[in-house]
């Protein structure tokens, strides 16, 4: 955040595009894009990173959750110009070299998903929670996941998955 100034953003009325540089899952990418294009569309349509899902488009379901500079963000609420120079982690970026992230393993083994459409966003939200709070209370779990809707599980399997990761202490 070097510069401290106002930026004018022009909508693509004619063929106005901007160049942005982003690090996505550790890889630097230079993109030419309309400035107001939603990040979720860049990820899904331009970069084929379809693990990030789209469901409500207004930040009310969490299916499009990604991490921007370490913070959990709804990628449907962020525009291209706003992520210039940012570092973005999507669900595709959290698999570790040795295999699944312990959160993913816990979701698998505790039945933290059914249709799976909310799962990438949910996993990102859990990751964001445990990165800050490795041993969260029930209230903290609820707060952290309150923006991620799941229609299948009733959250039972998700809660058990989070509790399992906490018990295993892999994020401590």
């Amino acid at each position: 955040m070097g510069e401290s100034r106002a930026v004018t953003v022009n909508q693509p009325t004619e063929d106005k595009t901007i160049d942005i540089t982003v690090v996505i899952n550790g890889k630097e990418q230079h993109l030419q894009t309309e400035p107001t294009k939603r990040l979720v569309d860049i990820l899904r349509n331009d970069l084929d990173l379809t693990g990030t899902k789209i469901s409500c488009g207004i930040g009310r379901c969490g299916a499009c959750s990604v991490m921007i500079n370490g913070n959990l963000i709804n990628s449907c609420l962020v525009m291209a110009y706003q992520v210039d120079q940012a570092s973005i982690t999507t669900i595709e970026g959290i698999v570790r070299e040795e295999g699944l992230d312990p959160i993913q393993t816990a979701f698998l083994e505790e039945g933290g998903f059914q249709c799976g459409y909310c799962t990438p966003g949910m996993v990102m939200a859990v990751k964001s929670l445990l990165a800050d709070t490795p041993n969260p209370t029930e209230e903290q779990i609820k707060t952290a996941l309150s923006g991620n809707l799941c229609r299948c599980t009733g959250y039972g399997g998700i809660i058990r998955a989070v509790q399992r990761v906490i018990e295993e202490g892999t994020y401590l």
Binding site: M1, V9, N10, Q11, T13
Partner: peptide, 14 residues
């Protein structure tokens, strides 16, 4: 629709 022009205040550190 978004306005034709947006002025971003986001980077004004002050």
């Amino acid at each position: 629709p978004l306005p034709e022009n947006l002025i971003s205040l986001e980077k004004i550190e002050s």
